[in-house]
Amino acid sequence: MRGKHHYLIALGSNRRHHRFGRPRDVVEAALIALVEKGIHVSRVSPIVLTAPIGPSLRRYANAAALIETDLGPHKLLRLFKKLERKFGRRPGGQRWTSRVIDLDIVLWSGGSYAAADLTIPHRLFRERDFVLTPALAVAPDWRDPISGLTVRQLTARLTAPRPLSR
């Protein structure tokens, strides 16, 4: 897999960092760290504050970005894990707890990808408003290779008002 790859990534934080400060500042610092590692960040969504999923009580700062890199999916995943550790995130532990930074690959220009430790598109992104809303700001016309729907269409489906059950 040589050449430039384009990725839609999701970033999230809901824990202060001793050096960077508030979660929104942590997200911005993570973007800067990506650039320092040679990743070209072409577009960044506004940072939105969202309610947590699961046991965490703290609100999340979430964003999406379009990036370009020579790194294939697994090398990018390794870079993300390394940066998460550098920011103080520890592997393991309870799912959906508070975290200093979370970096996820949502979509990539190569379409679908599946391995034991990485699936692209991200398995749950179609169900997550905190991913789709920021993604809509940077990649509204990017198509999900599984459903064939654009980010705009997926967001509309997820956020459409539904009638109350009787």
Rank of each mutant, 00 (worst) to 15 (best):
V151R: 03
V35F: 02
R143A: 12
I67Y: 05
F80G: 13
P161R: 14
L154R: 10
R152H: 14
W96F: 14
L34F: 11
A65M: 05
A137L: 02
A139C: 06
R157V: 03
A115Y: 03
A156P: 00
G3F: 09
N62H: 03
V41L: 04
H74P: 00
S165M: 05
D70F: 05
T155G: 03
R99Q: 12
A33F: 08
A160I: 01
E127G: 00
F87D: 06
P121G: 09
G93D: 00
P23Q: 13
V151S: 07
P134S: 08
I39C: 07
A29G: 05
I9S: 12
I9P: 13
P46N: 11
G110M: 10
P46D: 15
W142Y: 07
A139I: 03
I39D: 06
F87G: 10
H74R: 15
L11Y: 12
F20M: 09
L132R: 06
E36A: 10
A61T: 06
Q153M: 08
L124I: 06
A137K: 11
V100L: 09
V100D: 00
R123D: 04
R126T: 15
E28D: 05
L158G: 14
H18W: 03
L57S: 10
Y113K: 07
R59K: 09
P161W: 09
R126G: 02
T119G: 00
F130G: 13
K82L: 12
L76G: 09
A116Y: 08
R166I: 01
D102F: 01
L76W: 02
V26M: 09
V100T: 15
T69S: 14
R19N: 01
Q94T: 14
P91F: 08
S13D: 03
V27D: 06
